[in-house]
């Protein structure tokens, strides 16, 4: 697309913001609208936009198919792994409450910084927050990787007969 300078430059300006927005949707999904699915699709959209404008080879340099392939499985593993971790810690599968931990309770340095009467556990993510965060991250990774990989499959195909 060398003959479309406006598209190339506007794309270059837009892509960082699309990626940033995807991150925001991913990590702020518990507090506002958003979540892993949306973030994954938006992230993949940024990658696909880059691929459309600058060509498939340059996109594959940024996001090598070998790595993306593995990310497809990694996201699902992260999701299921969170469930297994809950089981290992004595809860049911995907029962995030057991992920609550107070591992800073005995650190005096942490207590010094707290307002009087406040317990350190308030500064750590609660089990449900942590569980939802991990699960959504897993979903986001899988969705990004699957959408990017599907794009590779279609774009890498040559026209025949």
């Amino acid at each position: 697309m060398n003959s479309f300078p406006i598209i190339r430059i506007v794309t270059k300006i837009l892509i960082p913001y699309i990626l940033l927005f995807a991150m925001y949707v991913q990590f702020h999904g518990d507090f506002g609208p958003g979540g892993g699915f949306q973030a994954g699709v938006i992230f993949a959209a940024a990658l696909i936009l880059y691929g459309l404008v600058y060509g498939l080879p340059s996109l594959q340099k940024v996001a090598p198919p070998r790595i993306i392939e593995k990310l497809i499985a990694l996201g699902l593993l992260l999701y299921a792994g969170t469930g297994i971790a809950c089981m290992m810690m004595g809860g049911n599968f995907l029962d995030y409450d057991v992920l609550t931990h107070n591992f800073l309770t005995d650190v005096p340095a942490a207590i010094d910084f707290l307002p009087p009467g406040e317990h350190p556990r308030h500064f750590l993510p609660q089990g449900q927050h942590l569980g939802i965060f991990l699960v959504e991250l897993g979903v986001g990774i899988t969705v990004t990787a699957v959408m990017t990989m599907i794009f590779y499959a279609f774009a890498g195909r040559e026209q025949v007969a």
Binding site: D30, F31, G32, P33, G34, V146
Partner: peptide, 28 residues
């Protein structure tokens, strides 16, 4: 959920966590 404001996320990822796991498997 310790005060997570977005109920949709809470239901999606926690109450109906199995469902979403299965669905991620479908996408996979």
């Amino acid at each position: 959920m310790h005060g997570l404001p977005n109920v949709v996320t809470a239901v999606l990822a926690s109450y109906r966590g199995y469902d979403t796991l299965g669905e991620t498997a479908v996408i996979f």
